[in-house]
């Protein structure tokens, strides 16, 4: 891979020929993908296709074996890249929420701003309350995660990411662990975040969300990007057998 000058490229996230193995298993195959600032990309595909691994590489929760991955102009794995600092620019929403159970909703939101951004506590708490109000949880500020429903926990988790004022938000199947009636409250918050111009990569099977806010849908299978296009193209005219088979399964209901 020649080192194309990443800083000149407009891509907020740039994969170039990225490969990753888990033992013998080639979980990411020759991934080349560029996500522009303010772009919303939905990643879908069958389970085990590598879509979670793909976005976990972006904030270094997984490391890549070869190829280039550049995020916000900084090359991952480069000794000059301060990974801890880069992570403060990238919000990550987990399938299982991963809120800190020993901290209240507000403390979950303010922890990183206070300790990483060094924002004074009173200021961080004010911003935290506003964020929790924004995700519809003004009355749950002092609740512990165990006292909240799944949908509420995931909204706190999104507020926790927004508290760092990130440039990029990554969502790893954010609604897969939720009861059906709670999915829309989380999707609504995600739509609002997207409409504010956040750069987002969202691993999800919520095709309604994809149609509404995504500029692009990326379909993965067996570790490779099989197809990529606008939601309209992808849903109405999937180009490959594998994407057609996948869509027929998830859109059947």
């Amino acid at each position: 891979m020649t080192s194309l000058s990443s800083k000149n490229g407009a891509g907020m996230i740039e994969f170039r020929g990225v490969n990753k193995w888990f033992g013998q298993l080639n979980v990411l195959r020759d991934i080349t993908l560029s996500v522009e600032p303010r772009e919303v990309v939905v990643v879908c595909g069958p389970s085990g296709s590598g879509k979670s691994t793909l976005i976990r590489c972006i904030n270094g929760l997984e490391t890549i074996r070869d190829g280039d991955l550049t995020v916000d102009g900084q090359r991952l794995g480069d000794p000059a890249t301060n990974m801890t600092r880069l992570r403060t620019e990238i919000g990550f929403v987990f399938q299982s929420f991963n809120l800190y159970p020993h901290k209240t909703a507000l403390e979950n939101v303010t922890l990183a701003p206070i300790h990483v951004r060094k924002i004074p506590r009173t200021e961080a708490e004010k911003a935290g309350r506003e964020l929790l109000a924004k995700v519809g949880l003004a009355d749950k500020v002092d609740a512990y995660p165990a006292q909240l429903s799944g949908g509420q926990q995931q909204r706190v988790a999104i507020a926790r990411c927004l508290g760092m004022r990130p440039k990029i938000m990554l969502f790893d199947e954010p609604t897969s662990a939720l009861d059906p009636e709670m999915i829309s409250e989380v999707l609504d918050v995600m739509v609002a975040v997207a409409e504010e111009g956040m750069t987002m990569m969202v691993v999800t099977h919520e095709m309604g969300f994809a149609r509404k806010v995504a500029q692009r849908v990326v379909f993965m299978d067996a570790g490779a990007i099989v197809e990529s296009g606008t939601p309209d193209e992808f849903f109405s005219n999937p180009k490959t057998d594998r994407s057609r088979a996948f869509l027929s399964k998830i859109l059947r209901h």
Binding site: N59, G60, L61, T84, R85, R87, T88, I90, G91, F92, F94, S96, N98, L99, Y100, L111, A112, H115, V116, R160, C161, M164
Partner: peptide, 14 residues
Amino acid sequence: PTGQVEAALASGLS
């Protein structure tokens, strides 16, 4: 749980 460490890692805590 590892998810706790990942969440802390993802928000940039040292």
